[in-house]
Amino acid sequence: MNKKIKEALQEVEPKVFYGIGRFQNRNNWDCIVYGRRRKGKTESRAGVIIRYFVAIVKEEEIPEGMEEKVLQAMKKVGFDKSNTETTYDYVEKSGETMVEIATMEFSKVEKRCRV
């Protein structure tokens, strides 16, 4: 699953990292970071719901429409946007520039098979 997600997100931004993006000693922070958020049973208990986060990290600002491109990339691999809001955070990069980070959450239901 991680390989498929990474390949889909690389169509939006070439630099994609799983888990955390290591930013120390990097000249350019522009990238996408994704990872697992949590996993649990569905309300009907007939399946498992997996939640992933996707964080768009861009120096100065996130280009208009990039969130939508990430949404489409995740849909391509079977994920839906969770009903959580997209959050925006801002950090300063070594006193040089501001970095905008948009974090979205996606979910996918996997059916469990009974043996």
Rank of each mutant, 00 (worst) to 15 (best):
G35R: 00
K69L: 12
K69W: 02
R26A: 07
D80A: 10
E60P: 00
E61C: 13
E85T: 13
V16A: 01
Y18E: 06
A46R: 14
K41R: 15
R22C: 01
S44F: 10
E13C: 05
R38Y: 14
I32C: 02
E85H: 09
V48Y: 11
Y18C: 05
V77Y: 03
V16T: 02
I62Y: 00
I20Q: 10
E61D: 13
N25W: 08
A46W: 09
E85I: 05
Q24I: 07
V57S: 04
P63G: 07
V77T: 08
K75T: 13
E67T: 04
R26T: 14
V70L: 09
E43R: 12
Q72W: 14
K58C: 09
C31Y: 00
E11R: 06
V16Q: 00
V48Q: 08
R36E: 15
E43C: 12
G19Q: 02
N25G: 03
E61H: 13
V54G: 06
G78C: 00
E13N: 06
V57Q: 06
Q72E: 14
I20D: 04
G47M: 10
K39P: 01
F53V: 15
R45L: 14
F17R: 03
N28G: 02
V77Q: 05
A46C: 10
V57C: 12
N25E: 10
R22I: 04
N28P: 02
G21L: 10
K75S: 11
M66W: 09
E11K: 09
N25S: 07
F79W: 03
W29K: 01
Q72T: 13
R26S: 06
G65R: 01
E43H: 15
R22Q: 08
R26K: 15
I50A: 08
G47D: 08
V12F: 10
P14G: 07
I32P: 00
E64K: 12
V12R: 04
E68P: 01
I50S: 10
R37N: 12
N27T: 08
C31H: 03
G35W: 04
P14V: 02
E59D: 09
K75A: 14
F79H: 01
R45C: 08
I20C: 10
Y52N: 09
T42A: 07
K39C: 12
E85R: 11
E11S: 04
F23D: 04
T42I: 08
I49Q: 14
Q24C: 05
V48S: 08
M66I: 13
V16M: 02
K75W: 07
A46H: 12
F23I: 08
N83Q: 06
D30V: 01
V77L: 05
V54Q: 04
R37M: 15
I32N: 02
P63W: 12
W29A: 03
K41P: 04
G78N: 02
K58H: 07
T42D: 09
E43D: 12
E59S: 09
D80K: 11
E59N: 09
S44Q: 13
W29L: 10
G47K: 06
V54K: 04
I50W: 05
F23N: 00
Y34V: 03
E64H: 13
M74S: 08
M74C: 10
G21Y: 06
G47W: 00
I49G: 06
T42E: 15
I49H: 07
C31Q: 05
K15R: 11
E64W: 11
E68Q: 11
K81Y: 11
F17E: 05
